[in-house]
Amino acid sequence: MAHSDYEDSDFTAESESMMDIEADSDYDEISSQYDSCYSSGSDNTTTLFSEVTNYKFEHGRRYHAYAEGLYWGPNDDKQNQQLEIFHHIFTMVLEGRLFLSPIEQPKKVLDLGTGTGIWAIEMADFLPNSQILGNDLSPVQPTWLDFPAIPANCTFEIDDFLRPWTHTSGSFDLIYARGLYGCVDEWPQLLSQAYNALAPGGWFESVEVKPYFCTETTPDNKLAEGTILKRWGELAVEASVKSGRPLDIAGNVGGWMKRTGFVNVSEKPFKVPYGPWPKGERMKMIGKLMCVNVLEGLEGFTLALFTRYLGWSAKQYTDFHNLIVTEMRDPHLNLWVLM
């Protein structure tokens, strides 16, 4: 996680303990809880409305039509449910906070890649005197017909943030970007546009996750060679590089921000457990939710990448997918991801 503004700050992020998770040694109970996690998963700015909603279908999954192919993830109900689960995990990791930038009352906020709009909606509830704008390629957010689900101070636009922005200089006090891995081909260009759209003293906050698992069972936290999970991460990163929009960007955004001209750039890492292996109810619950999150999103994370850029058939991916799920259920791996 990286954030920055134009002016000095004494801000220091909390939750240092998130990088030091103690493992629970009751493997029988952990195994039982893994089983319950897996049984929780389900089985399943343009006015050109037809361009936006004429969705594309590949291998039984639905993808965005507007700026077709730019984003690897589906926009169907299954994937949208996963996005909302991840949002809940994120707020638990941050102990209920929606952002870490040290700005108390940003008047105008832009949420890049808003997805289902859940972060923008909660921000609008949290800041009723602020204007929150959510931007995405897919019109999967609630509409005004869903009022009061959408606060009056929250709006959404369908637009491609990789194209030249129409927002004028000084338009926003906070620009928030979460989960843009695999979506951006030119980060310096995106950050330059964000920089120009911020008001003096404004903040840009980025949240990204490493696209592979780590483990507590090895000194260097790397999975053993030959494991399916290690191979999955390597293939996903390879496919994303071939697409021109890399997944493995967590830890790099801060450097790009500095080169763009942002000041007071700071980065805060969080270790997010996968599975109920940690001690402590809060971390155990985060781990359980991560199980459901990955189970719901696993196919959507990599199906398009593997079939579009690695030349795999849907059958090949399905077989590999099943091996991934089997290995993820090993309660002795003590898996986690870096955010």
Rank of each mutant, 00 (worst) to 15 (best):
K268F: 15
L190Y: 08
N252D: 13
G254L: 04
P211L: 02
R259P: 04
L191S: 07
F270H: 11
W256N: 07
P200M: 11
S169E: 14
R231D: 15
E186F: 15
E205G: 02
L174E: 00
S192K: 09
E208M: 01
T218R: 09
P273D: 09
A199D: 14
F213K: 00
F161N: 02
N252K: 10
D173F: 02
L190I: 12
S192E: 14
K242V: 01
A224P: 13
E267P: 00
E238F: 01
S192M: 10
K258W: 04
W165L: 07
Y195N: 05
G179T: 08
W256Y: 12
E205F: 08
G261H: 05
L180A: 12
A194H: 00
F172S: 01
H167A: 05
W187C: 03
P269D: 13
G275V: 03
P246N: 10
A250H: 01
M257D: 00
L180Q: 09
D248E: 11
L180I: 03
V253G: 03
E216Y: 10
V237F: 06
S266P: 06
W187P: 01
G261Y: 08
V184L: 03
V209T: 11
L198F: 13
F172P: 00
H167P: 03
K242C: 08
R245I: 08
D185H: 14
R178T: 03
V241R: 11
R231N: 12
T217H: 15
A199C: 11
C183I: 00
C214A: 12
R259T: 14
R178C: 08
P269T: 12
P188G: 03
V265M: 04
Q193Y: 13
G244M: 02
V272K: 05
A194P: 06
P246H: 10
E234F: 04
D220N: 04
Y195K: 09
Y195E: 14
L174C: 05
V207P: 00
F213A: 07
D173Y: 04
I228T: 14
L235P: 07
L235R: 02
D185E: 15
F213T: 01
L229P: 00
A250G: 06
P273K: 01
E208N: 01
D185C: 12
D185Y: 14
T215G: 03
F172Q: 04
K271E: 15
F172M: 07
F270C: 08
Y181H: 13
S240C: 03
D248H: 03
I228A: 09
F161A: 11
E186Q: 12
E267C: 05
G170S: 05
W232G: 02
G182H: 01
L198N: 00
W256F: 10
Y212W: 08
L235E: 10
N221Y: 14
I228H: 05
A236F: 06
W232V: 04
L247Y: 11
L180H: 10
S171M: 00
K268R: 14
Q193I: 02
A236P: 05
G201C: 10
Y195M: 12
P200A: 09
L191Y: 08
P188K: 06
R245H: 06
L190D: 09
H167I: 09
C183T: 00
A250I: 05
Q189N: 15
D220W: 09
D173H: 05
D248P: 07
Y176T: 09
P164H: 03
G244V: 02
P200Q: 13
A194Y: 01
P246Y: 04
T217D: 13
P219N: 12
T217K: 14
I175H: 01
R231K: 13
G251P: 03
L235C: 07
T227D: 11
G170Q: 07
R163V: 14
